[in-house]
């Protein structure tokens, strides 16, 4: 299979680029053949500290195939220790200590594409999700799958997320999995919640949001994607939050 994938991201309005707390894989554009590839986005929670680090660790775990849905809690333990070792390196003020005790939280959405037939360019996809980051699959100008949320009404500001605190368990029912098939020409959009919510709302209105997202090339400073997101925020059509998109086309 041939993969074209490109990440786009923009931090919450009012924040600096260094305060961006989402994470994504791949980090840069890719355009190449592969028989198997993993993609992911993660959204570190605003109200917890050191969540950008935790989001990056979850992405790393997923792309290393080290986050099996059947045993997430066990798989996380090594990454929780990495997080704890990193944030514990230097003395912290009292409020930061309390935040560390609570732990960082993040969503994770992983997508794995595999080729089953090289001659006909088709294959399988598998996804794992905890939280409200979403993937949408588009085929022949139609939305054919949306996971784990299917409508804008399902979003709120209190999702269940994976924690760097080993005491905070996530129930099995909150770890969701989905499998499907891809065909040559399919597109996948991996999105953190603010963009995913806009995408699903626009889909219901038959506005073909995928056409808009396919129009960005990541060029320019600021790039067209960032400017477009900011326009939607100002018009009240998108929540002011970190926004991340991994756009994938497979052939």
């Amino acid at each position: 299979m041939h993969i074209h994938a490109q990440p786009f991201w923009v931090q919450k309005f009012g924040n600096s680029r260094e305060e961006y707390e989402d994470a994504h894989w791949p980090r840069r554009r890719i355009d190449r053949k592969a028989s198997h590839f993993r993609f992911a986005v993660a959204d570190g929670a605003t109200e917890t500290s050191f969540s950008a680090l935790w989001a990056r660790l979850l992405i790393w775990a997923y792309q290393r195939a080290d986050l099996p849905a059947e045993d997430v809690s066990h798989a996380l333990s090594g990454y929780q220790k990495m997080w704890s070792d990193h944030v514990g390196k230097k003395p912290l003020p009292w409020f930061a200590e309390e935040k560390v005790r609570q732990g960082a939280f993040s969503s994770i959405l992983g997508l794995s594409l595999s080729e089953t037939s090289e001659s006909t360019a088709r294959g399988d996809w598998q996804s794992i999700a905890v939280g409200d980051s979403c993937l949408c699959q588009v085929r022949n100008d139609s939305l054919v799958a949306s996971f784990p949320l299917e409508s804008a009404a399902e979003f709120n500001s209190r999702p269940t997320l994976l924690s760097s605190n080993p005491q905070v368990r996530v129930e099995e029912s909150q770890i969701q999995e989905r499998k499907g098939e891809w065909e040559s020409g399919d597109s996948f959009f991996l999105m953190t919640d603010a963009l995913a919510c806009w995408f699903l709302e626009a889909s219901v209105r038959d506005e073909r949001p995928w056409e808009i997202l396919c129009g960005f090339d990541g060029q320019g400073e600021p790039d067209a994607f960032s400017e477009w997101v900011q326009q939607l925020r100002q018009g009240g059509a998108m929540k002011n939050d970190d926004v991340t998109l991994v756009r994938i086309t497979v052939e």
Partner: peptide, 11 residues
Amino acid sequence: LDIGTRPNNLR
């Protein structure tokens, strides 16, 4: 109070 995403499993 809402200042952004607050995990519902944060205690």
